[in-house]
C-alpha cells in the first residue's frame, strides 16, 4: 500500500518537502493533497479495464467534525454511472459517504469499503439528470475533527 502510494505521489508530480524523519510519510505542502492521493490510490482499480471509470481532476476537500455532515452539490447526468471516494487520514476515522437527490432523498447506491477504515466509496447511476448532494460525515466513534478529500469519476 505504502509502495503504491509513493509511486502515485511520484507519478502525480506533486511537490513535497523532504520528511525530517525517515519513517514519516512525505509531508505534502497541502495536507489535503496527501488525503486526495489516498483516495486516488483506492480508486486505481476502478480506473482500469473495459468498464473503467474516468477520473475527474476536480475534487473537494475540507475539515469536518465527528457527527457533523457536509454536503457537496454536484450536477450528474442520466445514463452515466458515477463513483465517489471519500478519504480521511486517520484509520479510525470511519468516513461515511451517501448521495441524495435534489429533494433530499437518499439515493440507493453501492458502497465499497477498503482495507482499513479511512476510505469509503459509493457508486450511483442517476435516474434523472440534475443536481445531487454528496453527504460526507464521520462516525461518532472518533473524537477529533478530520481533514477529508473527495474525488469522483464517471463512465
Amino acid at each position: 500500500m505504502r509502495v503504491s502510494l509513493f509511486a502515485l505521489i511520484l507519478v502525480s508530480g506533486i511537490t513535497f518537502t523532504t520528511a525530517q524523519e525517515k519513517d514519516e510519510l512525505p509531508a505534502l505542502d497541502n495536507p489535503h493533497n496527501y488525503i486526495k492521493l489516498l483516495a486516488q490510490d483506492a480508486a486505481l482499480p476502478a480506473l482500469q479495464g473495459e468498464e473503467k471509470f474516468i477520473l475527474r481532476e476536480s475534487w473537494w476537500s475540507g475539515r469536518m467534525e465527528p457527527g457533523k455532515a457536509k454536503l457537496i452539490q454536484v450536477q450528474l447526468f442520466r445514463r452515466n454511472a458515477y463513483q465517489f471516494w471519500l478519504a480521511v487520514p486517520n484509520r479510525n476515522g470511519e468516513p461515511i459517504i451517501n448521495v441524495y437527490d435534489s429533494e433530499g432523498n437518499l439515493i440507493p447506491s453501492e458502497s465499497l469499503n477498503f482495507e482499513g477504515t479511512n476510505i469509503v466509496s459509493t457508486m450511483i447511476q442517476p435516474e434523472i439528470t440534475g443536481v445531487y448532494y454528496i453527504r460526507v460525515s464521520l462516525k461518532t466513534t472518533i473524537e477529533s475533527p478530520q481533514d477529508w478529500a473527495v474525488i469522483y469519476a464517471y463512465r
Partner: peptide, 30 residues
Amino acid sequence: SQWGLAQEAPVKIDLEDPNLVFVSDSVIPI
C-alpha cells in the same frame, strides 16, 4: 464485505435546514 448497502444514513434530509453545511467549491462538469 466489499460492496455493501449504503451505510447508515438518514433516508431524507431537509435541504432548507439552516444547520446544513455546504461545501462552497462548485465543480463544473466537463
